[in-house]
Amino acid sequence: MRRRSALAATTLAFAGTAMGQAARLRIGFAVGYAPFSEIGTDGQLKGFEIDVAQALSAKLGQAYTPVILEFDGLIPALQSRKIDAIMASMSITPERQQVIAFSSPYYFSPARMVMRGDTRTDVSPAGMKGKRIGVERGTIHERFLAEQFGGIQLVRYATQDQAFLDLKSGRLDATLVDAAIAQFGFLNHADGRGFGFVGPDFARDQRYYGKGIGVGLRKAEAATLGQRVDEALAALRSNGTLKTLNDRYFSFDLVTPPK
């Protein structure tokens, strides 16, 4: 297990000499999601979202300080002005848009169920009735399962890594998670041997999963910082930076908007 409690109280500074004296952006991350954001063996943050944040910071001409939090603490930290933005694979959903603003999407991810054994399992509310399904607390996966799979035993975790551990040990029957996180954080490793994806891509239900993954921002700053972030993301998309970063980590395309 990663020693997250010590890291959560720590911030790591990324400064650029060309970024002048502009106030640093405090960007909130939830680590433990390879290859999106994790702590490397050298104690440094790494991953796709970390690289996107660095590219975004450079394009804005503003250095940033990463702040590591549990996922369900990110929106409260944004609202209480402890951080200025969220980059933690947070889906742009109508429910979240009631309380915070979002940038345009910087990537898109399927949501899949992971189980052991037969991938022909009936992954429907009836077919999963009575099964123990794990989910990270505070995610859109939690709300989706609570409202659409009422007959299951929903087990909530502080981190997705904890859910994977219980899935491996047999204390869970399944977990619902972003497909890329499941692939790189579990299925590609020895612990994930014998497990696989089952059922459909639940992220196609935009009532819950919204329109992609965006930078979370305070509503009051949507027309200021939000506009600058959107312009920077558009530039990173048009000049190929987002696709280059995508290809550094993935053999499939997460950054091109789906048609």
Rank of each mutant, 00 (worst) to 15 (best):
R193E: 12
V177E: 10
R207E: 09
K211M: 11
N188E: 12
N188H: 11
D205V: 07
R204G: 13
D191Q: 15
F197W: 02
A179C: 09
A190E: 15
A190K: 15
P200F: 06
Y208I: 04
R204E: 12
G210M: 03
R204T: 12
A190N: 10
V198S: 11
G192I: 09
Q206V: 11
D205P: 12
R204S: 01
R204W: 00
D191N: 15
H189Q: 14
G212A: 08
G194L: 08
A180P: 04
D205Q: 13
L187Q: 13
G199P: 04
L187K: 12
G196V: 03
G212K: 01
G194D: 03
A182N: 02
R193W: 04
A203N: 10
D205W: 12
L176Y: 06
I181Q: 10
V198M: 08
K211Q: 14
A182L: 01
L176E: 10
R193I: 03
R204H: 01
A182P: 02
A179R: 12
G196H: 03
D191I: 15
F197A: 00
R207C: 05
R204V: 09
A203F: 08
G194F: 09
K211P: 00
V177G: 05
Y209F: 15
F195Q: 06
F186C: 10
A179G: 08
G212C: 02
T175H: 01
A203I: 05
D191M: 15
Y208T: 05
G194R: 00
G212S: 03
G185T: 07
G196Y: 01
F184H: 15
L176I: 04
R204C: 07
F186L: 10
A179M: 12
Q183W: 09
F197C: 03
R207L: 14
Y208F: 15
Y209D: 00
R193Q: 13
Q206G: 08
R193V: 11
T175I: 14
P200D: 05
K211T: 15
D205N: 15
